[in-house]
Amino acid sequence: MTKLNKFISDSGCCSRRKAADLIKDGQVTVNGTITLEPYYEVQEKDAIKVNNKLIQHDTHKLYFLFNKPQDVITTASDPQGRRTVMDFFKRIKSRVFPVGRLDRNTTGVMLVTNDGDLTQKLSHPKFGVSKTYHVTTHKPVTKEHMELLLKGVKLEDGFMKVDKVRRLTQRKNSISVTIHSGKKHVVKRLFKQLRYFVERLDRTRFAGLTKQGLPLGTYRPLLKEEIQKLKDL
């Protein structure tokens, strides 16, 4: 038997963590009755609904690498009618969802899938998934500040440091940083603390996957070996 939050996640509706939130918010029913228990064990004949929509188990897993452009929201839908990541996947019949988030004006590589287990793994802080960003600031970052980024910068929620940092020679105001933290807006907050305004943020690598050869606003299916590497992390 499968726990309720995992069942919803495996259907491609959302991540397991998001499924647990939906359950606790009273948006999930089992056989017509609201349940607030994410670990309820789903029975074979149970009818599971999320926001009154019947959830069916999707056993065919899909994995896509997407190069997100600017001015795109990382959600399934937006009440203000702005473009979302899902607008680029309308041809995909199965329900898929993005792994993690990129800010509206942050560009770059992200994974889109209906594999709830993998989403949970890649999103959980304990796995320390590596991410690389190209950061363009309003002025060149000093050598001292680059060294400080490696040592650690005090933020409101504790010390934070990057794993790698290097200057991009083709752009004097741009550097590359690699970080494994999943904290919200952590890259922008690091530079803000050092008195830099981030003009452009582009994620070039996520969990070993790069956007090389993938134009903005396009996606491709992952290769079998790429999927296996993600599962082996």
Rank of each mutant, 00 (worst) to 15 (best):
M1C: 09
K6N: 07
K6F: 02
S9G: 15
G12Q: 10
S15A: 10
S15G: 15
R16P: 07
K18L: 13
L22H: 11
I23L: 06
I23M: 05
I23W: 01
D25L: 14
G26I: 09
V28I: 10
V30N: 00
P38R: 07
D46R: 06
D46M: 00
K49A: 12
K49H: 14
N51D: 15
N51I: 06
N51S: 12
N52M: 10
I55E: 01
Q56N: 14
H57S: 05
H57I: 07
D58Y: 05
T59C: 07
T59W: 06
T59M: 04
L62H: 10
L62A: 12
Y63R: 03
F64L: 06
L65C: 12
F66D: 10
F66C: 09
K68Y: 03
D71G: 04
D71R: 13
V72Q: 06
I73E: 02
I73P: 02
T75M: 12
S77Q: 13
D78Q: 10
D78E: 09
Q80R: 11
G81Y: 02
T84D: 12
T84Q: 15
T84W: 11
M86F: 13
D87A: 09
D87V: 07
F89W: 10
V96H: 10
V96Q: 05
P98G: 12
P98S: 01
V99P: 08
G100A: 08
L102G: 06
T107H: 03
G108V: 13
V109G: 05
V109T: 12
V109F: 08
M110H: 11
L111A: 10
T113V: 01
D115K: 00
G116I: 07
G116C: 08
D117W: 00
L118E: 02
L118R: 04
K121Q: 14
K121C: 05
L122M: 08
K126S: 15
F127Q: 01
S130Y: 12
Y133E: 04
H134W: 13
V135N: 00
T137S: 11
V141R: 00
L148S: 09
G152A: 06
K154N: 11
K154F: 07
M160G: 01
D163R: 09
K164V: 08
L168E: 10
Q170Y: 07
Q170W: 02
N173C: 00
S174I: 01
S174P: 05
S174H: 02
I175R: 00
V177N: 00
V177M: 01
I179T: 04
I179P: 04
K183S: 00
K184P: 00
V187M: 03
V187I: 15
R189A: 03
R189N: 03
L194F: 11
R195V: 02
V198H: 09
L201G: 04
D202S: 11
R203W: 11
R203V: 01
R205E: 15
R205N: 14
F206L: 15
L209F: 09
T210A: 09
T210G: 05
P215C: 11
L216S: 13
T218W: 03
Y219P: 11
R220G: 04
I227A: 03
